[in-house]
């Protein structure tokens, strides 16, 4: 039966499409924009405060990353970040706080399966693919940059 897309299934697919409610696109875009934007404003605020207190550019950027990750982990632990995620969608998933949430939440969830086979093994279950493809593409881009530089120097 599986894979056999007969006309019966096609007409059923049309029913499913017609009767399944759609996500409210414009509203969820606005929510994502506002929350995502606010997270970035907070980051900027931390960075500027760091600079005002005499940190150099690099240290200020690091401070910003650390604090955002810490806040996200804290809010995840307090059971707030999932509610924010439900409201904001990609707005709270895409910034670095979303990445932290994707590591802290499985770590909390799988603690009962032990620190090695649970927390250790499952911590990267969501963030893992991001890391794998993030690192792979950074290597790829680095190689392209490297060869382009040789080509243009030569």
């Amino acid at each position: 039966m599986n894979g056999g897309n007969t006309s019966k299934h096609t007409s059923y697919d049309e029913k499913v499409k017609r009767l399944s409610p759609k996500s409210e696109k414009p509203m969820s875009l606005v929510k994502a924009f506002v929350v995502g934007g606010l997270i970035c404003v907070l980051g900027q605020l931390i960075r500027d405060t760091g600079l005002a207190f005499g940190l150099d550019e690099e240290a200020a950027a690091l401070l910003c990353t650390f604090l955002l990750i810490f806040l996200s982990a804290l809010l995840t632990g307090l059971g707030v970040y999932d509610k924010l995620g439900r409201f904001a969608g990609a707005g709270s998933i895409v910034p670095i706080t979303g990445f932290a949430n994707s590591m802290v939440s499985p770590a909390m969830e799988f603690k009962r399966e032990g620190y090695i086979t649970g927390v250790g093994a499952k911590m990267f279950v969501i963030a893992g693919p991001v890391l794998v493809y993030g690192i792979c593409s950074s290597i790829l881009v680095g190689l392209i940059y490297f060869f382009l530089r040789i080509a243009f120097k030569g």
Partner: peptide, 17 residues
């Protein structure tokens, strides 16, 4: 949730259906 979907505290979004 933990068997079929995501960790409880993860801020994910579900479709309305």
């Amino acid at each position: 949730e933990r068997q079929y979907r995501f960790p409880l505290e993860m801020g994910s979004v579900r479709p309305p259906y």
